[in-house]
């Protein structure tokens, strides 16, 4: 597993139709909004969660046993099937009372072992409770919040249920619920991958390919009542020739534009066809190559 040797930046577009891409716990699960601009938001941790879930799915066998080197440390119960859980219960490793590794070498060894075995530690990093710097892994991948290209307007949809949960509500016959959806929103996210930090965690080219696959397919395995239809639309990757990079990231991001092409600019967009995403390939700086994965 040799680490990657190039710096990368990527621009990732995904859209949502009649769904809630990321609820805001502060606003009763309304889709997140930037209060100043009314643009929709999807947090970095939301996207990372989906990447983890995709990797957990792709890299595990029928019984849910993960492939060596691709275990996910931060797991969601819903992605583990029951057999998987039983396996864990059967093999439960009893935690010892808290002991800190005495020396740095020991801490480094622990960190290296975690990086070798766990994809998400290798990619995003993790914090270990050691008081030594080596106990903190800074992963090579850094993602920023995704924002919608245009302002979005969440709708509140009231729904009824023909059953009740509690016996005392029997005479009510039905209960009401709420869903919040965005009729349509195209979101744009930016990501950064540092080759120098990858050296330290051993994030390899194979891992990178897996990351691109995860970004391309993660919504395909994340269907739910709340999400509506979500789809990855474009993944534009800038690869620098050298590890430190050949151009400022913000200059590269500016080369990618999403414009309204169908309908008036101030009317609501309702499908991906209303937008055109263009990459100004002519102006890409020397030493940077562009590749479109989607």
């Amino acid at each position: 597993m040799t680490a990657i040797t190039n710096r990368y930046e990527f621009v990732y577009f995904f859209d949502v139709t009649n769904g809630n891409p990321n609820g805001d716990p502060d606003a009763g699960n309304l889709p997140r909004l930037d209060p100043e601009t009314n643009q929709g938001l999807v947090t970095d941790v939301c996207l990372k969660r989906k990447i983890r879930n995709y990797v957990a799915l792709e890299k595990s066998d029928a019984e849910g046993k993960p492939e060596a080197g691709y275990v996910i440390y931060m797991q969601e119960k819903s992605v583990l099937n029951n057999q998987h859980k039983q396996a864990y219960e059967a093999l439960k490793i009893e935690p010892e009372p808290k002991k800190l590794p005495k020396d740095e070498a020991k801490a480094r060894e622990l960190t290296a072992w975690m990086c070798r075995n766990f994809f998400d530690v290798r990619a995003f990093g993790a914090v270990m409770t050691t008081e030594i710097n080596a106990g903190q892994v800074r992963g090579p991948i850094q993602m920023a919040f995704a924002t919608s290209v245009d302002p979005v307007v969440p709708l509140e949809v009231s729904i009824t249920r023909m059953a009740v949960t509690n016996e005392k509500d029997l005479e009510k016959e039905r209960t009401m619920g709420r869903k919040h959806i965005i009729p349509y929103g195209l979101y744009r996210a930016h990501g950064f991958i540092s080759a120098k930090l990858a050296e330290r965690t051993g994030f390899s080219d194979a891992d990178l390919e897996l990351l691109w696959r995860a970004l391309g397919n993660m919504f395909e395995h994340d269907r739910s009542a709340a999400r509506g239809e979500m789809a990855a639309r474009r993944l534009i990757v800038f690869k620098h020739e050298c590890a430190m990079g050949n151009a400022p990231a913000h200059k590269l991001f500016e080369l990618v534009k999403a414009e309204r092409v169908e309908g008036e600019a101030d009317t609501p967009a309702r499908s991906f066809a209303d937008y055109r995403i263009s990459v100004d390939a002519e102006s890409v700086p020397v030493g940077v190559s562009v590749r479109e994965y989607i």
């Binding site: 864990y88 093999l91 622990l110 993790a126 270990m128 106990g135």
Partner: peptide, 21 residues
């Protein structure tokens, strides 16, 4: 946070199951 003790244990046992959050 990830505890160093549980990592040491898993390393000794040579397996990753049980070491998740």
């Amino acid at each position: 946070k990830l505890s160093a003790a549980s990592v040491t244990k898993a390393m000794k046992a040579g397996r990753t199951d049980g070491l998740v959050s």
